[in-house]
Computed example of a mutant assay.
Amino acid sequence: MAGHSNWRAYREKRLREDAAPHPEYEQAGLDLRLGDMIRERRIELGLTQALVAERAGISQPALSRIEGGAGIPTLAMLDRIAKAMHTTFTITVGTDAAA
C-alpha cells in the first residue's frame, strides 16, 4: 500500500459514494484506528510519547509510528504500552456473524 494519504482519499471517496471495499485500505483503516485509540488514551492521561515509550521499552519513533498507523504492535508490545500508561486495552477480533 502506498500510504495513509491514499487510504484517507479512499475513505473520503467511500463517504461520498458507494465504492467497492478494498482489502488493503480496510486493513489500513483498522491500523489507523488502533493507533488513534492509543494516542487518544495517552493524551487523555496527559502522558508524552517519550515517557510512554521509555516505560514500554520501545523508542519514541516506534510509538509515533504505531500511533500514526504505520507500525503495528505485537500483542506483547501492546500489553507493554498499556502497562506503561497504567491502563488496559480491550480488543475484539472478528465480526459478529449474527449482525
Rank of each mutant, 00 (worst) to 15 (best):
H4D: 14
S5C: 06
W7M: 02
R8C: 08
A9Q: 11
Y10R: 00
Y10K: 03
K13Y: 07
R14P: 01
R14L: 12
R16I: 06
R16Y: 05
R16V: 07
R16H: 09
R16P: 01
E17H: 12
E17Q: 14
D18C: 13
A20D: 11
P21Q: 10
P21F: 09
H22L: 11
H22E: 14
P23M: 01
P23Y: 07
E24W: 06
Y25L: 10
Y25M: 13
Y25T: 00
E26R: 00
Q27T: 05
Q27P: 03
A28E: 08
A28F: 04
A28T: 04
G29K: 04
G29Q: 02
L30E: 14
D31H: 08
L32R: 09
R33C: 06
R33M: 07
L34V: 05
L34Q: 01
G35I: 02
G35F: 00
D36N: 14
R39M: 13
E40G: 08
R41C: 07
R42N: 09
I43H: 13
I43V: 13
E44K: 14
L45A: 06
L45G: 08
G46Y: 00
L47K: 09
L47A: 03
T48H: 11
Q49V: 07
V52T: 06
A53S: 06
A53H: 07
E54Q: 15
E54S: 08
R55G: 00
A56W: 01
A56K: 00
G57I: 04
I58T: 05
S59I: 02
S59Q: 12
P61Y: 09
A62M: 10
A62D: 02
A62Q: 12
A62R: 09
L63T: 01
L63V: 03
L63K: 00
S64W: 00
S64I: 06
S64Q: 10
S64L: 05
R65P: 01
R65Y: 11
I66D: 01
E67M: 06
E67H: 03
G68R: 13
G68M: 09
G71S: 03
I72G: 03
I72L: 14
P73I: 07
T74W: 03
T74I: 07
L75I: 09
L75K: 05
L78M: 07
L78Y: 08
R80D: 10
R80L: 05
I81H: 03
I81V: 10
A82L: 02
A82V: 05
A84W: 03
M85V: 05
M85R: 12
H86G: 13
T87G: 12
T87H: 11
T88P: 06
T88W: 14
T90F: 08
T90D: 12
T90P: 00
T90K: 10
T92W: 07
G94E: 06
T95R: 13
T95E: 15
T95Y: 13
A97D: 15
A97W: 07
A97G: 14
A98Q: 14
A98T: 12
A99E: 04
A99Q: 06
A99Y: 03
A99I: 04
